Simulated assay, not measured.
Amino acid sequence: MDDIREKWQMLLICIAIGIIAAIITGWFLYQNRMEFWKMQARSAFRVALGEELQKRSVEIPFSAQENIDLSVMDANDRKKEPIKVSMISKYGEKNFIIPYEKHIHNIERPSDWRAIRSIVLEDHPLIADSLNLLWKELLGWIEYPGKTAVRISVMDWWEHEACSYSEDSLYLSKSDSLDTHYLGYRCEVGVTGYLYGPWWMIFSWKDMLLLGALIVSCTLLYFVYDYMSRIYHRLFVKEISVVVEKEVPVVIEKEIPVIACHESQPHIYRLEDGLRFDADLNMLKNGDMCVKLTPLSAKLLRGFLDAKDFKLSNDEILNLLWPDGNGTLNNLHTNVKRLRGYLSRISNYKIENKNFSYLLKNPHFIEEIPE
Rank of each mutant, 00 (worst) to 15 (best):
K90A: 12
I152P: 10
F36W: 07
C290M: 15
A279N: 15
I60L: 04
E52M: 07
A279E: 15
P257M: 00
V243L: 11
M73F: 07
N330L: 12
N76D: 09
A115D: 07
D179R: 09
F45W: 10
R56N: 15
P295F: 03
E368K: 10
H181Y: 11
V242K: 12
N326E: 14
E367K: 12
M39W: 01
V216P: 00
S63H: 03
I142P: 13
W158E: 15
I68N: 10
I259Y: 00
T25W: 05
Y196P: 08
V191N: 05
I107A: 08
T334D: 06
E352T: 11
E188P: 09
M201I: 06
V291S: 09
C163W: 04
G212K: 01
E239V: 09
D324I: 03
F356I: 12
E93R: 14
K354I: 12
A75P: 03
I17Q: 02
S43N: 13
Y185T: 07
L284T: 08
C163D: 14
V154K: 10
A162D: 15
D273I: 01
G18T: 08
F277T: 11
I4S: 09
K361H: 14
I97D: 12
A64F: 02
Y232G: 08
W37L: 05
I15A: 11
D2K: 14
L138E: 13
N326A: 06
E167Q: 14
F310M: 09
S43K: 13
Y171C: 01
G341V: 00
R234N: 05
A260C: 10
G26T: 08
W135M: 02
T294Y: 00
F365V: 08
N314S: 11
I202Q: 07
H124T: 11
M283D: 09
P99E: 06
W141G: 09
G341T: 03
C163Y: 08
L70N: 12
G303C: 04
Y194A: 01
A64C: 06
L139K: 13
K7C: 10
K136W: 08
I116A: 13
E239T: 12
W157Y: 13
N319H: 12
N353W: 00
A41Y: 02
P257L: 00
E81R: 13
L178H: 12
S169Q: 06
Q65F: 05
Y225G: 07
I366D: 04
H233Y: 13
D74H: 02
V242R: 06
R345Y: 00
R186E: 07
L301N: 01
I142M: 10
S89K: 05
Y349V: 01
D179M: 14
D69I: 04
I127C: 04
W157K: 13
M201H: 14
Q40F: 01
K238N: 13
L235R: 07
L343E: 00
K361S: 14
D226T: 09
N330C: 13
F96D: 11
H233D: 12
W27V: 08
V150W: 11
I119H: 04
S177I: 04
I256C: 03
Y194Q: 04
F28C: 10
F223S: 04
T334M: 04
Y222A: 02
N348Q: 12
F304Q: 05
Y30S: 05
E6A: 04
A307F: 06
E247H: 06
H233I: 09
I346P: 08
M283Y: 03
M87F: 01
A149C: 10
L29P: 00
S347M: 00
